[in-house]
């Protein structure tokens, strides 16, 4: 066995047991398709607010706001957030109505790697709006051992 093949082999052994199956851009696209169906997603109206450089992926503050009058006739029905590289592509799905008065949802999320985050809002007329953000994570969540 030459050196190169030996190294490749050990890398596979070391990486496999610890690397949880990770979501991919394709998995994210599929998770989005499950929510959106065949409808078109237009970029705009949604603001996705999270820090571009994240030192600790365990708690990342995230705020999604959608431009909407939030009346019975015209409001945001749902806000969904997706990621590319955590073990699963879904982050959260929130249901809203005209009773919210303001289409803003805040939470804190975990990020396992530097990646793209996508927020999609569904309005009461059945249209979908989106925003995305690329973030750099220096300390990833999920992978460190618990003590």
């Amino acid at each position: 066995m030459d050196r190169r093949r030996f190294l490749a082999g050990t890398a596979a052994i070391v990486v496999l047991p610890f690397g949880p199956a990770s979501a991919t851009p394709e998995a994210m696209a599929e998770a989005i398709r499950k929510v959106v169906g065949d409808a078109a997603v237009t970029e705009g109206r949604v603001t996705l607010d999270l820090p571009p450089l994240i030192e600790n992926g365990n708690t990342v503050p995230l705020v999604v706001s959608v431009e909407s009058p939030m009346t019975v006739a015209d409001h945001v029905k749902a806000i969904h957030v997706f990621n590319e590289k955590n073990p699963q592509p879904n982050v959260f799905s929130a249901r809203l109505s005209a009773r919210n008065g303001k289409a803003t949802v805040g939470t804190r999320i975990k990020l396992g790697d530097s990646q793209k985050i996508v927020a999609i809002a569904e309005t009461s007329d059945g249209k979908f709006w989106s925003a995305s953000a690329d973030v750099i994570v220096t300390l990833a969540a999920c992978l460190e051992e618990s003590t």
Partner: peptide
């Protein structure tokens, strides 16, 4: 809100209400 494992420990949620 439907949460996934990607929500941080000690989940925090903020929203608005009329």
């Amino acid at each position: 809100m439907d949460m996934s494992p990607a929500i941080s420990a000690n989940p925090f949620v903020s929203f608005f209400a009329m």
